[in-house]
Design a protein around this nucleic acid. Structure first.
Lengths: 236, 236
DNA sequence: GTTTATATATGACTTTAATCATACGTAGTT
DNA sequence: AACTACGTATGATTAAAGTCATATATAAAC
Protein backbone atom coordinates (compact mmCIF):
# COMPACT_ATOMS: atom_id res chain seq x y z
CA UNK A 1 0.00 0.00 0.00
CA UNK A 2 1.86 2.95 -1.36
CA UNK A 3 0.85 6.58 -0.84
CA UNK A 4 0.40 8.67 -3.93
CA UNK A 5 -0.90 12.12 -4.68
CA UNK A 6 -4.09 12.86 -6.54
CA UNK A 7 -6.03 16.05 -7.05
CA UNK A 8 -9.80 15.69 -6.62
CA UNK A 9 -10.53 18.48 -9.08
CA UNK A 10 -8.76 16.66 -11.88
CA UNK A 11 -9.45 13.13 -10.77
CA UNK A 12 -10.87 10.83 -13.44
CA UNK A 13 -13.30 9.49 -10.89
CA UNK A 14 -14.79 12.92 -10.33
CA UNK A 15 -17.04 12.76 -13.37
CA UNK A 16 -19.04 9.84 -11.99
CA UNK A 17 -18.90 10.52 -8.25
CA UNK A 18 -20.54 13.04 -5.94
CA UNK A 19 -17.45 15.18 -6.44
CA UNK A 20 -19.06 16.32 -9.67
CA UNK A 21 -21.56 18.21 -7.51
CA UNK A 22 -18.80 19.96 -5.57
CA UNK A 23 -17.88 23.59 -6.06
CA UNK A 24 -14.19 24.14 -6.81
CA UNK A 25 -13.63 25.27 -3.23
CA UNK A 26 -15.27 22.14 -1.88
CA UNK A 27 -13.20 19.93 -4.13
CA UNK A 28 -10.18 21.78 -2.83
CA UNK A 29 -11.13 21.07 0.77
CA UNK A 30 -11.65 17.39 0.06
CA UNK A 31 -8.41 17.29 -1.87
CA UNK A 32 -6.47 18.79 1.03
CA UNK A 33 -8.02 16.50 3.62
CA UNK A 34 -7.85 13.23 1.75
CA UNK A 35 -5.03 10.74 1.68
CA UNK A 36 -4.56 8.53 -1.29
CA UNK A 37 -3.20 4.99 -1.39
CA UNK A 38 -2.33 2.31 -3.87
CA UNK A 39 -3.54 -1.22 -3.11
CA UNK A 40 -2.50 -4.38 -4.89
CA UNK A 41 -5.03 -6.96 -6.04
CA UNK A 42 -6.06 -9.04 -3.04
CA UNK A 43 -5.40 -6.37 -0.42
CA UNK A 44 -8.24 -5.10 1.74
CA UNK A 45 -9.15 -1.46 2.30
CA UNK A 46 -11.34 -2.01 5.36
CA UNK A 47 -12.86 -4.86 7.35
CA UNK A 48 -16.39 -5.63 8.52
CA UNK A 49 -17.33 -4.88 12.13
CA UNK A 50 -14.85 -2.02 12.36
CA UNK A 51 -15.96 1.54 13.03
CA UNK A 52 -15.75 3.64 9.85
CA UNK A 53 -13.38 6.60 10.15
CA UNK A 54 -14.26 8.14 6.82
CA UNK A 55 -15.20 7.25 3.29
CA UNK A 56 -13.15 5.81 0.47
CA UNK A 57 -13.22 6.91 -3.14
CA UNK A 58 -12.01 4.53 -5.83
CA UNK A 59 -10.14 6.58 -8.37
CA UNK A 60 -8.89 3.48 -10.19
CA UNK A 61 -9.49 -0.25 -9.97
CA UNK A 62 -12.30 -2.37 -8.61
CA UNK A 63 -13.24 -3.89 -5.28
CA UNK A 64 -15.59 -6.53 -3.94
CA UNK A 65 -17.58 -6.01 -0.74
CA UNK A 66 -17.89 -9.23 1.22
CA UNK A 67 -19.23 -10.68 4.46
CA UNK A 68 -17.69 -13.82 5.89
CA UNK A 69 -19.34 -16.61 7.83
CA UNK A 70 -17.87 -18.67 10.64
CA UNK A 71 -16.07 -21.08 8.31
CA UNK A 72 -14.50 -18.15 6.48
CA UNK A 73 -16.68 -18.60 3.42
CA UNK A 74 -17.40 -15.20 2.02
CA UNK A 75 -20.49 -13.78 0.38
CA UNK A 76 -19.98 -11.01 -2.16
CA UNK A 77 -22.52 -8.28 -1.39
CA UNK A 78 -21.66 -5.94 -4.23
CA UNK A 79 -18.86 -4.50 -6.35
CA UNK A 80 -17.54 -0.97 -6.67
CA UNK A 81 -15.63 0.56 -9.54
CA UNK A 82 -13.88 3.82 -10.45
CA UNK A 83 -15.70 6.84 -9.09
CA UNK A 84 -17.71 4.89 -6.55
CA UNK A 85 -17.62 5.48 -2.83
CA UNK A 86 -17.32 3.02 0.01
CA UNK A 87 -18.02 3.15 3.69
CA UNK A 88 -20.55 5.97 3.64
CA UNK A 89 -23.48 3.67 4.49
CA UNK A 90 -21.98 2.74 7.84
CA UNK A 91 -20.79 6.30 8.44
CA UNK A 92 -24.19 7.89 7.88
CA UNK A 93 -26.07 5.14 9.74
CA UNK A 94 -23.56 5.60 12.56
CA UNK A 95 -22.99 1.86 12.67
CA UNK A 96 -20.01 -0.48 12.25
CA UNK A 97 -19.07 -1.56 8.75
CA UNK A 98 -21.06 -4.60 7.64
CA UNK A 99 -18.67 -5.66 4.88
CA UNK A 100 -15.01 -6.04 3.99
CA UNK A 101 -13.64 -4.21 0.92
CA UNK A 102 -11.04 -6.19 -1.02
CA UNK A 103 -9.41 -5.19 -4.29
CA UNK A 104 -10.00 -7.48 -7.25
CA UNK A 105 -7.62 -5.38 -9.36
CA UNK A 106 -4.76 -3.04 -8.51
CA UNK A 107 -6.55 -0.06 -7.06
CA UNK A 108 -6.00 3.60 -6.25
CA UNK A 109 -8.27 4.71 -3.45
CA UNK A 110 -8.58 7.97 -1.53
CA UNK A 111 -9.62 8.23 2.10
CA UNK A 112 -11.74 11.24 3.11
CA UNK A 113 -12.06 11.72 6.88
CA UNK A 114 -15.49 11.43 8.43
CA UNK A 115 -15.94 15.08 9.46
CA UNK A 116 -14.98 16.43 6.03
CA UNK A 117 -17.47 14.19 4.30
CA UNK A 118 -20.29 14.74 6.79
CA UNK A 119 -19.82 18.50 6.60
CA UNK A 120 -19.97 18.38 2.82
CA UNK A 121 -23.14 16.35 3.06
CA UNK A 122 -24.65 18.91 5.38
CA UNK A 123 -23.59 22.00 3.44
CA UNK A 124 -24.15 20.92 -0.13
CA UNK A 125 -27.80 20.12 -0.83
CA UNK A 126 -27.05 18.71 -4.26
CA UNK A 127 -24.64 16.14 -2.87
CA UNK A 128 -27.16 15.28 -0.20
CA UNK A 129 -29.84 14.77 -2.82
CA UNK A 130 -27.51 12.69 -4.94
CA UNK A 131 -26.62 10.45 -1.98
CA UNK A 132 -30.26 10.04 -1.00
CA UNK A 133 -31.23 9.03 -4.51
CA UNK A 134 -28.29 6.71 -4.89
CA UNK A 135 -29.09 4.97 -1.59
CA UNK A 136 -32.70 4.50 -2.65
CA UNK A 137 -31.55 2.98 -5.89
CA UNK A 138 -29.17 0.62 -4.09
CA UNK A 139 -31.89 -0.45 -1.70
CA UNK A 140 -34.09 -1.38 -4.66
CA UNK A 141 -31.23 -3.46 -6.06
CA UNK A 142 -30.78 -5.17 -2.69
CA UNK A 143 -34.49 -6.03 -2.62
CA UNK A 144 -34.23 -7.63 -6.04
CA UNK A 145 -31.20 -9.55 -4.87
CA UNK A 146 -33.14 -10.86 -1.86
CA UNK A 147 -35.87 -12.17 -4.14
CA UNK A 148 -33.34 -13.72 -6.49
CA UNK A 149 -31.57 -15.59 -3.69
CA UNK A 150 -34.85 -16.71 -2.15
CA UNK A 151 -36.62 -17.87 -5.31
CA UNK A 152 -34.20 -18.62 -8.12
CA UNK A 153 -32.24 -21.84 -8.60
CA UNK A 154 -28.44 -21.82 -8.65
CA UNK A 155 -28.52 -22.26 -12.42
CA UNK A 156 -30.76 -19.22 -12.82
CA UNK A 157 -28.62 -17.15 -10.49
CA UNK A 158 -25.43 -18.10 -12.32
CA UNK A 159 -26.91 -16.97 -15.64
CA UNK A 160 -27.98 -13.76 -13.93
CA UNK A 161 -24.50 -13.28 -12.46
CA UNK A 162 -22.75 -13.70 -15.80
CA UNK A 163 -24.99 -11.07 -17.38
CA UNK A 164 -24.49 -8.82 -14.37
CA UNK A 165 -20.70 -9.09 -14.57
CA UNK A 166 -20.73 -8.39 -18.28
CA UNK A 167 -22.80 -5.25 -17.74
CA UNK A 168 -21.04 -4.04 -14.60
CA UNK A 169 -17.52 -4.40 -15.91
CA UNK A 170 -18.36 -3.17 -19.37
CA UNK A 171 -15.16 -1.65 -20.62
CA UNK A 172 -15.74 1.47 -22.70
CA UNK A 173 -12.46 1.05 -24.51
CA UNK A 174 -13.02 -2.63 -25.21
CA UNK A 175 -14.19 -3.39 -28.71
CA UNK A 176 -15.60 -6.70 -27.53
CA UNK A 177 -18.62 -6.24 -25.32
CA UNK A 178 -19.42 -9.95 -25.09
CA UNK A 179 -16.23 -10.71 -23.24
CA UNK A 180 -16.66 -10.28 -19.50
CA UNK A 181 -14.02 -7.67 -18.78
CA UNK A 182 -13.23 -8.80 -15.25
CA UNK A 183 -11.41 -12.00 -14.31
CA UNK A 184 -12.78 -13.62 -11.19
CA UNK A 185 -11.77 -17.04 -9.89
CA UNK A 186 -14.62 -19.59 -9.86
CA UNK A 187 -14.69 -19.28 -6.09
CA UNK A 188 -15.60 -15.59 -6.30
CA UNK A 189 -18.34 -16.32 -8.82
CA UNK A 190 -19.67 -18.94 -6.39
CA UNK A 191 -19.60 -16.32 -3.65
CA UNK A 192 -21.76 -13.98 -5.71
CA UNK A 193 -24.25 -16.68 -6.67
CA UNK A 194 -24.32 -18.13 -3.17
CA UNK A 195 -23.27 -21.69 -4.00
CA UNK A 196 -20.27 -24.06 -3.94
CA UNK A 197 -17.28 -23.56 -6.22
CA UNK A 198 -17.70 -27.03 -7.74
CA UNK A 199 -21.29 -26.25 -8.66
CA UNK A 200 -20.20 -23.12 -10.54
CA UNK A 201 -17.52 -25.07 -12.40
CA UNK A 202 -20.01 -27.76 -13.35
CA UNK A 203 -22.68 -25.31 -14.53
CA UNK A 204 -20.15 -23.25 -16.48
CA UNK A 205 -19.10 -26.46 -18.27
CA UNK A 206 -22.76 -27.10 -19.06
CA UNK A 207 -23.24 -23.57 -20.37
CA UNK A 208 -20.18 -24.07 -22.53
CA UNK A 209 -21.46 -27.38 -23.93
CA UNK A 210 -24.75 -25.66 -24.67
CA UNK A 211 -22.83 -22.92 -26.56
CA UNK A 212 -24.12 -20.21 -24.21
CA UNK A 213 -20.65 -19.13 -23.20
CA UNK A 214 -17.05 -19.78 -24.13
CA UNK A 215 -13.92 -19.76 -22.00
CA UNK A 216 -10.96 -17.86 -23.41
CA UNK A 217 -8.05 -18.21 -21.04
CA UNK A 218 -9.24 -16.75 -17.77
CA UNK A 219 -12.04 -14.77 -19.40
CA UNK A 220 -15.60 -15.76 -20.13
CA UNK A 221 -17.33 -14.80 -23.37
CA UNK A 222 -21.10 -14.56 -23.65
CA UNK A 223 -22.15 -16.36 -26.83
CA UNK A 224 -25.92 -16.39 -26.42
CA UNK A 225 -27.10 -13.52 -24.29
CA UNK A 226 -30.82 -13.98 -24.88
CA UNK A 227 -30.64 -17.64 -23.87
CA UNK A 228 -28.88 -16.66 -20.64
CA UNK A 229 -31.55 -14.03 -20.05
CA UNK A 230 -34.22 -16.66 -20.56
CA UNK A 231 -32.54 -18.96 -18.03
CA UNK A 232 -32.07 -16.11 -15.59
CA UNK A 233 -35.74 -15.13 -15.78
CA UNK A 234 -37.25 -18.60 -15.95
CA UNK A 235 -38.89 -18.33 -12.52
CA UNK A 236 -38.54 -14.63 -11.63
CA UNK B 1 -61.21 0.74 1.90
CA UNK B 2 -63.02 3.38 3.85
CA UNK B 3 -61.94 7.01 4.09
CA UNK B 4 -61.44 8.41 7.56
CA UNK B 5 -60.01 11.58 9.00
CA UNK B 6 -56.84 11.84 10.98
CA UNK B 7 -54.80 14.80 12.11
CA UNK B 8 -51.04 14.42 11.63
CA UNK B 9 -50.24 16.64 14.60
CA UNK B 10 -52.07 14.36 16.97
CA UNK B 11 -51.47 11.09 15.16
CA UNK B 12 -50.13 8.25 17.29
CA UNK B 13 -47.73 7.39 14.52
CA UNK B 14 -46.14 10.84 14.65
CA UNK B 15 -43.84 10.02 17.55
CA UNK B 16 -41.96 7.36 15.63
CA UNK B 17 -42.05 8.78 12.11
CA UNK B 18 -40.36 11.67 10.34
CA UNK B 19 -43.39 13.75 11.32
CA UNK B 20 -41.76 14.15 14.71
CA UNK B 21 -39.20 16.37 12.96
CA UNK B 22 -41.89 18.56 11.44
CA UNK B 23 -42.73 22.02 12.69
CA UNK B 24 -46.39 22.51 13.55
CA UNK B 25 -46.92 24.37 10.29
CA UNK B 26 -45.35 21.55 8.29
CA UNK B 27 -47.50 18.97 10.05
CA UNK B 28 -50.47 21.16 9.17
CA UNK B 29 -49.53 21.19 5.50
CA UNK B 30 -49.11 17.40 5.43
CA UNK B 31 -52.38 17.01 7.31
CA UNK B 32 -54.26 19.13 4.79
CA UNK B 33 -52.75 17.40 1.77
CA UNK B 34 -53.02 13.80 2.94
CA UNK B 35 -55.92 11.44 2.50
CA UNK B 36 -56.46 8.69 4.96
CA UNK B 37 -57.92 5.25 4.34
CA UNK B 38 -58.88 2.15 6.21
CA UNK B 39 -57.75 -1.18 4.75
CA UNK B 40 -58.86 -4.61 5.84
CA UNK B 41 -56.41 -7.46 6.42
CA UNK B 42 -55.46 -8.91 3.06
CA UNK B 43 -56.04 -5.74 1.04
CA UNK B 44 -53.15 -4.14 -0.83
CA UNK B 45 -52.13 -0.50 -0.64
CA UNK B 46 -49.96 -0.47 -3.75
CA UNK B 47 -48.52 -2.88 -6.29
CA UNK B 48 -45.03 -3.52 -7.59
CA UNK B 49 -44.05 -2.07 -11.01
CA UNK B 50 -46.44 0.85 -10.63
CA UNK B 51 -45.22 4.44 -10.56
CA UNK B 52 -45.37 5.86 -7.03
CA UNK B 53 -47.66 8.88 -6.68
CA UNK B 54 -46.74 9.68 -3.11
CA UNK B 55 -45.84 8.06 0.15
CA UNK B 56 -47.93 6.13 2.63
CA UNK B 57 -47.84 6.46 6.40
CA UNK B 58 -49.14 3.62 8.55
CA UNK B 59 -50.95 5.16 11.46
CA UNK B 60 -52.29 1.80 12.59
CA UNK B 61 -51.80 -1.84 11.62
CA UNK B 62 -49.03 -3.71 9.84
CA UNK B 63 -48.13 -4.54 6.26
CA UNK B 64 -45.87 -6.92 4.39
CA UNK B 65 -43.83 -5.81 1.38
CA UNK B 66 -43.61 -8.57 -1.20
CA UNK B 67 -42.31 -9.37 -4.66
CA UNK B 68 -43.94 -12.10 -6.72
CA UNK B 69 -42.36 -14.48 -9.19
CA UNK B 70 -43.89 -15.89 -12.36
CA UNK B 71 -45.75 -18.68 -10.55
CA UNK B 72 -47.26 -16.13 -8.17
CA UNK B 73 -45.08 -17.27 -5.27
CA UNK B 74 -44.29 -14.23 -3.21
CA UNK B 75 -41.17 -13.28 -1.33
CA UNK B 76 -41.58 -11.06 1.72
CA UNK B 77 -38.97 -8.32 1.52
CA UNK B 78 -39.79 -6.56 4.78
CA UNK B 79 -42.54 -5.51 7.16
CA UNK B 80 -43.75 -2.08 8.21
CA UNK B 81 -45.62 -1.14 11.35
CA UNK B 82 -47.29 1.93 12.89
CA UNK B 83 -45.39 5.10 12.18
CA UNK B 84 -43.43 3.65 9.30
CA UNK B 85 -43.50 5.00 5.78
CA UNK B 86 -43.85 3.19 2.49
CA UNK B 87 -43.13 4.04 -1.09
CA UNK B 88 -40.53 6.71 -0.48
CA UNK B 89 -37.68 4.55 -1.77
CA UNK B 90 -39.20 4.38 -5.26
CA UNK B 91 -40.28 8.01 -5.11
CA UNK B 92 -36.83 9.33 -4.25
CA UNK B 93 -35.03 6.99 -6.63
CA UNK B 94 -37.51 8.08 -9.31
CA UNK B 95 -38.18 4.46 -10.17
CA UNK B 96 -41.24 2.18 -10.23
CA UNK B 97 -42.20 0.45 -7.01
CA UNK B 98 -40.31 -2.82 -6.56
CA UNK B 99 -42.74 -4.36 -4.07
CA UNK B 100 -46.40 -4.79 -3.26
CA UNK B 101 -47.72 -3.59 0.12
CA UNK B 102 -50.39 -5.84 1.64
CA UNK B 103 -52.00 -5.49 5.05
CA UNK B 104 -51.46 -8.35 7.47
CA UNK B 105 -53.79 -6.66 9.98
CA UNK B 106 -56.59 -4.13 9.64
CA UNK B 107 -54.72 -0.96 8.83
CA UNK B 108 -55.16 2.80 8.79
CA UNK B 109 -52.85 4.39 6.27
CA UNK B 110 -52.45 7.96 5.05
CA UNK B 111 -51.40 8.93 1.55
CA UNK B 112 -49.20 12.01 1.18
CA UNK B 113 -48.85 13.27 -2.41
CA UNK B 114 -45.44 13.20 -4.01
CA UNK B 115 -44.88 16.96 -4.27
CA UNK B 116 -45.80 17.62 -0.64
CA UNK B 117 -43.37 14.97 0.58
CA UNK B 118 -40.54 15.96 -1.73
CA UNK B 119 -40.90 19.61 -0.78
CA UNK B 120 -40.77 18.71 2.89
CA UNK B 121 -37.66 16.67 2.24
CA UNK B 122 -36.06 19.61 0.49
CA UNK B 123 -37.04 22.26 3.01
CA UNK B 124 -36.51 20.45 6.29
CA UNK B 125 -32.90 19.42 6.81
CA UNK B 126 -33.71 17.35 9.87
CA UNK B 127 -36.18 15.21 7.98
CA UNK B 128 -33.69 14.84 5.18
CA UNK B 129 -31.03 13.71 7.63
CA UNK B 130 -33.42 11.30 9.28
CA UNK B 131 -34.37 9.74 5.93
CA UNK B 132 -30.74 9.46 4.87
CA UNK B 133 -29.80 7.71 8.09
CA UNK B 134 -32.81 5.44 7.99
CA UNK B 135 -32.05 4.40 4.41
CA UNK B 136 -28.45 3.61 5.32
CA UNK B 137 -29.65 1.49 8.19
CA UNK B 138 -32.10 -0.37 5.95
CA UNK B 139 -29.39 -1.01 3.39
CA UNK B 140 -27.25 -2.60 6.09
CA UNK B 141 -30.17 -4.84 7.05
CA UNK B 142 -30.64 -5.80 3.40
CA UNK B 143 -26.96 -6.72 3.14
CA UNK B 144 -27.27 -8.99 6.16
CA UNK B 145 -30.34 -10.54 4.63
CA UNK B 146 -28.44 -11.27 1.42
CA UNK B 147 -25.76 -13.10 3.36
CA UNK B 148 -28.33 -15.01 5.35
CA UNK B 149 -30.16 -16.22 2.25
CA UNK B 150 -26.92 -17.11 0.51
CA UNK B 151 -25.18 -18.93 3.34
CA UNK B 152 -27.62 -20.16 5.96
CA UNK B 153 -29.66 -23.36 5.79
CA UNK B 154 -33.47 -23.21 5.84
CA UNK B 155 -33.43 -24.43 9.44
CA UNK B 156 -31.09 -21.61 10.46
CA UNK B 157 -33.16 -19.04 8.61
CA UNK B 158 -36.38 -20.23 10.21
CA UNK B 159 -34.89 -19.86 13.69
CA UNK B 160 -33.71 -16.40 12.67
CA UNK B 161 -37.16 -15.51 11.34
CA UNK B 162 -38.95 -16.56 14.53
CA UNK B 163 -36.64 -14.37 16.60
CA UNK B 164 -37.05 -11.55 14.11
CA UNK B 165 -40.86 -11.75 14.26
CA UNK B 166 -40.82 -11.81 18.04
CA UNK B 167 -38.64 -8.70 18.14
CA UNK B 168 -40.36 -6.82 15.32
CA UNK B 169 -43.91 -7.33 16.54
CA UNK B 170 -43.04 -6.87 20.18
CA UNK B 171 -46.23 -5.54 21.70
CA UNK B 172 -45.56 -2.93 24.37
CA UNK B 173 -48.87 -3.63 26.05
CA UNK B 174 -48.39 -7.38 25.99
CA UNK B 175 -47.25 -8.86 29.26
CA UNK B 176 -45.92 -11.89 27.43
CA UNK B 177 -42.88 -11.09 25.38
CA UNK B 178 -42.19 -14.68 24.39
CA UNK B 179 -45.40 -14.96 22.43
CA UNK B 180 -44.94 -13.80 18.86
CA UNK B 181 -47.51 -11.02 18.70
CA UNK B 182 -48.30 -11.37 15.00
CA UNK B 183 -50.21 -14.24 13.43
CA UNK B 184 -48.88 -15.23 10.06
CA UNK B 185 -49.95 -18.28 8.07
CA UNK B 186 -47.20 -20.85 7.53
CA UNK B 187 -47.12 -19.79 3.90
CA UNK B 188 -46.10 -16.24 4.86
CA UNK B 189 -43.40 -17.56 7.16
CA UNK B 190 -42.15 -19.67 4.26
CA UNK B 191 -42.11 -16.53 2.10
CA UNK B 192 -39.90 -14.75 4.59
CA UNK B 193 -37.50 -17.66 4.97
CA UNK B 194 -37.46 -18.37 1.26
CA UNK B 195 -38.60 -21.96 1.33
CA UNK B 196 -41.66 -24.20 0.80
CA UNK B 197 -44.65 -24.08 3.15
CA UNK B 198 -44.35 -27.80 3.92
CA UNK B 199 -40.74 -27.32 4.96
CA UNK B 200 -41.75 -24.62 7.44
CA UNK B 201 -44.50 -26.84 8.89
CA UNK B 202 -42.09 -29.73 9.25
CA UNK B 203 -39.37 -27.66 10.91
CA UNK B 204 -41.83 -25.96 13.27
CA UNK B 205 -42.98 -29.44 14.35
CA UNK B 206 -39.35 -30.34 14.98
CA UNK B 207 -38.77 -27.16 16.99
CA UNK B 208 -41.85 -28.00 19.00
CA UNK B 209 -40.68 -31.57 19.69
CA UNK B 210 -37.34 -30.14 20.75
CA UNK B 211 -39.17 -27.80 23.18
CA UNK B 212 -37.80 -24.71 21.45
CA UNK B 213 -41.24 -23.33 20.69
CA UNK B 214 -44.86 -24.05 21.46
CA UNK B 215 -47.98 -23.49 19.38
CA UNK B 216 -50.89 -21.83 21.15
CA UNK B 217 -53.80 -21.60 18.75
CA UNK B 218 -52.49 -19.53 15.86
CA UNK B 219 -49.68 -18.02 17.87
CA UNK B 220 -46.16 -19.25 18.38
CA UNK B 221 -44.43 -19.02 21.72
CA UNK B 222 -40.65 -18.95 22.04
CA UNK B 223 -39.66 -21.40 24.79
CA UNK B 224 -35.91 -21.44 24.36
CA UNK B 225 -34.62 -18.25 22.86
CA UNK B 226 -30.92 -18.93 23.33
CA UNK B 227 -31.21 -22.30 21.61
CA UNK B 228 -32.92 -20.63 18.64
CA UNK B 229 -30.17 -18.03 18.59
CA UNK B 230 -27.58 -20.79 18.55
CA UNK B 231 -29.32 -22.47 15.61
CA UNK B 232 -29.70 -19.16 13.80
CA UNK B 233 -26.00 -18.37 14.16
CA UNK B 234 -24.59 -21.83 13.62
CA UNK B 235 -22.93 -20.94 10.32
CA UNK B 236 -23.16 -17.12 10.20
C1' DG C 1 -75.51 -27.92 11.82
C1' DT C 2 -73.82 -29.20 7.48
C1' DT C 3 -71.17 -28.02 3.68
C1' DT C 4 -67.19 -25.93 1.61
C1' DA C 5 -62.94 -23.99 1.61
C1' DT C 6 -58.58 -23.20 3.48
C1' DA C 7 -54.64 -24.11 6.60
C1' DT C 8 -51.93 -27.45 8.83
C1' DA C 9 -49.74 -31.87 9.13
C1' DT C 10 -47.24 -35.95 7.59
C1' DG C 11 -45.53 -39.57 4.41
C1' DA C 12 -43.29 -40.97 0.07
C1' DC C 13 -40.49 -39.70 -3.48
C1' DT C 14 -37.61 -36.73 -6.51
C1' DT C 15 -34.56 -33.20 -7.45
C1' DT C 16 -31.05 -30.08 -6.47
C1' DA C 17 -27.00 -28.91 -4.73
C1' DA C 18 -23.31 -29.83 -1.16
C1' DT C 19 -19.56 -32.61 0.12
C1' DC C 20 -15.74 -35.64 -0.46
C1' DA C 21 -12.27 -37.56 -3.35
C1' DT C 22 -9.20 -37.37 -6.95
C1' DA C 23 -7.04 -35.93 -11.23
C1' DC C 24 -5.38 -32.51 -14.32
C1' DG C 25 -3.64 -27.94 -15.74
C1' DT C 26 -1.18 -23.77 -15.10
C1' DA C 27 1.94 -20.66 -12.90
C1' DG C 28 5.48 -19.63 -9.98
C1' DT C 29 9.76 -21.37 -7.40
C1' DT C 30 13.96 -23.57 -6.53
C1' DA D 1 13.29 -29.99 -15.02
C1' DA D 2 11.29 -31.07 -10.80
C1' DC D 3 8.76 -29.30 -7.03
C1' DT D 4 5.03 -26.78 -5.05
C1' DA D 5 0.84 -24.46 -4.83
C1' DC D 6 -3.36 -23.32 -6.42
C1' DG D 7 -7.22 -23.23 -9.53
C1' DT D 8 -10.03 -25.97 -12.48
C1' DA D 9 -12.42 -30.16 -13.68
C1' DT D 10 -15.11 -34.36 -12.98
C1' DG D 11 -16.97 -38.51 -10.61
C1' DA D 12 -19.25 -40.66 -6.61
C1' DT D 13 -21.92 -40.11 -2.71
C1' DT D 14 -24.68 -37.78 0.70
C1' DA D 15 -27.64 -34.46 2.50
C1' DA D 16 -31.03 -30.91 2.14
C1' DA D 17 -35.00 -29.28 0.56
C1' DG D 18 -38.73 -29.35 -3.01
C1' DT D 19 -42.74 -31.64 -4.88
C1' DC D 20 -46.70 -34.52 -4.92
C1' DA D 21 -50.22 -36.93 -2.51
C1' DT D 22 -53.27 -37.37 1.09
C1' DA D 23 -55.27 -36.78 5.72
C1' DT D 24 -56.83 -33.94 9.33
C1' DA D 25 -57.98 -29.67 11.60
C1' DT D 26 -59.86 -25.18 11.55
C1' DA D 27 -62.49 -21.52 9.83
C1' DA D 28 -65.99 -19.56 6.75
C1' DA D 29 -70.34 -19.90 4.20
C1' DC D 30 -74.81 -21.44 3.62
Amino acid sequence: MQKIYLDCKNCDAKAVSFLSYCTDEEAEIVSAAKSCSHYKKGQSIFYEDNIPLGIYCLSKGAIKLTRSNKDGKEQIIRFAREGEFLGYRALIADEPLVATATCIEDTVCCFVPKNVFLELLEKNAQINKHMLKSLCHDLGIADERIQSLAQKSVRERLAETLLFLQKTFQDDKAQDENLIAVTLPREDIANIVGTATETVIRLLSEFKSDKLIDMEGKKIRILNQSALERISHASV
